[in-house]
Design a protein around this nucleic acid. Structure first.
Length: 209
DNA sequence: CGGAAGATCCACT
DNA sequence: GTGGATCTTCCGA
């Protein structure tokens, strides 16, 4: 089934703000033993390397933690945050540029029961409970630093063609949780599938008041 | 070597 | 809407 064909390397070798909307609707496929977990990406954020105060590659700072950001596009960058959570990025662009796309939210397609166990939910899952946030998504799919630097075309974690989303279905807004980012605070680098209920947070123009 | 911050989430009011 | 959990990473002294 072509929905499960991995995205080619060429897909990733562009600026993060081009790749981020193009990743919407794609499948993230995680293999765990005999289990296969599949989610559909519904929210992403672009981080623009050295020029972006919100990026871990700001001012081209290169450390052991963020080494993957400086690899050629097509690998995962996974980092640990707030003492408890992991976040998954797809590295984009050529080598040395530090561009990446944060996978912020996804919609469960297959393996929901296992994801629910990983999330240790006590109630019936509601939209967004399983993977509606970068930390939740990594918990549901058991993604941690072991997958940092992993090539996203290969098991046990790959991104496939899925159901691409047309530009008329994409909504854009400022990024989340980067209030410190000065000039970059309001850059329109957050992308989501319009009207999708599995996103991490509502958009300003979807609010009531 | 110490302090502070952080691309988050949850429980509680 | 607010605060606490929790700990690696980084930078300045």
């Amino acid at each position: 089934m072509s929905r499960y064909a991995p995205l080619p390397l060429k897909f990733y070798r562009r600026r993060a703000d081009e790749v981020a909307p193009a990743l919407l609707g794609r499948y993230l496929v995680r293999e765990l033993g005999n289990d296969r977990l599949v989610v559909r990406i519904v929210e992403t954020e672009a981080y623009l390397g050295g020029i972006d105060r919100a990026s871990h590659a700001w001012q081209d700072r290169r450390t052991p933690r963020n080494e993957s950001l400086f690899q050629p596009g097509g690998v995962a960058y996974v980092y640990f945050i707030y003492g408890m959570y992991f976040c998954l990025n797809a590295v984009t662009g050529g080598p040395e540029n530090g561009d990446a796309v944060l996978i912020r939210a996804a919609e469960p397609i297959a393996g929901s029961e296992l994801m629910e166990r990983h999330r240790a939910l006590r109630r019936e899952p509601r939209p967004g409970d399983l993977a509606g946030g970068p930390g939740k998504l990594c918990q549901a799919l058991e993604i941690d630093r072991d997958l940092d630097g992993h090539r996203l075309q290969r098991v046990p974690l790959r991104i496939t063609r899925g159901d691409a989303v047309g530009s008329q279905e994409v909504v854009v807004g400022p990024r989340i949780g980067i209030d410190y980012a000065e000039k970059a605070v309001n850059w329109p680098l957050r992308f989501a599938v319009a009207g999708n209920r599995h996103v991490s947070k509502p958009y300003p123009w979807n609010r009531d008041g």
